[in-house]
């Protein structure tokens, strides 16, 4: 590794390792969509998209898109065997009703109590929420993929969110460029960290105390 930090692809790879065979999974628009590329061999997760489709596959060859067959990011997708279509109320019923195993989202900030801010930076411009506020409620696990710090170096794992909230107390696990952190009873609990990084250095770029419960494993990912 040239830099002591995971690439987005490596963060996505790490998150993919936790997706069980047969899991129903919603991947947020953008960065979280990369998780699908790193599906573990021999496992068959089923991907859900808010606009009414379970069981979609990767983008089709350019020129063969069907624009009635899209995902929530309005990108063309393909159908896998066993796919199904349904209307929007059923689609969000799957989310709120607890039928999804995992929802994986991006973040501006995650607070130690599980609050998530990921839809809006401030109050300027046109606000657009999409399904962000619905997706954080109901899945058995709500995971976040994020750089550990902002481009300016500020912590994204914080004591309390300062950006507008998407949901309260909803995140269960955070995969960052430096660590894997669970949220347990209002605290960050460190599960894995890069081997070359000391606890003190990691704490210094984290905006709230990192607790431990037993051993902290090395965060090990392949070169991608």
């Amino acid at each position: 590794m040239s830099e002591l930090k995971l690439s987005n692809a490596q963060i996505a790879w790490r998150a993919a390792q936790d997706i069980e065979d047969g899991a129903y999974v919603n991947l947020g628009i953008g960065f979280p969509e990369m998780v699908a590329q790193y599906t573990v061999e021999g496992r068959t997760p089923v991907f859900h998209t808010e606009n009414g489709l379970l069981g979609f596959g990767p983008a089709p060859e350019p020129g063969t898109e069907d624009w009635d067959l899209i995902n929530a990011g309005k990108k063309a997708v393909t159908l896998k065997p066993g796919a199904s279509f349904f209307h929007h109320a059923d689609s969000f019923g799957m989310v709120r009703g607890g039928h999804l195993d995992v929802a994986i989202l991006g973040a501006l900030q995650v607070a130690q109590n599980g609050d998530l801010a990921n839809w809006r930076v401030g109050n300027k411009g046109v606000p657009a929420v999409g399904g962000a506020m619905d997706l954080v409620h109901g899945a058995k696990r709500v995971a976040v993929l994020t750089d550990h710090v902002t481009k300016k170096g500020d912590p994204k794992l914080v004591d309390a969110c300062t950006f507008p909230l998407t949901g309260v107390g909803c995140v269960t696990r955070v995969y960052t460029s430096l660590a894997v952190v669970d949220i347990v009873d209002g605290h960050f609990v460190l599960r894995e960290k890069l081997a070359g990084m000391s606890m003190d250095d990691l704490q210094a770029v984290t905006g709230a105390p990192l607790h431990t419960e037993g051993d902290v494993a090395d965060l090990v990912v392949p070169e991608l």
Binding site: S91, R96, P127, G131
Partner: peptide
Amino acid sequence: LELVPQGTLAERIR
């Protein structure tokens, strides 16, 4: 603009 979370929008219409 009345901004409504997408699942809430669907459920309100239902």
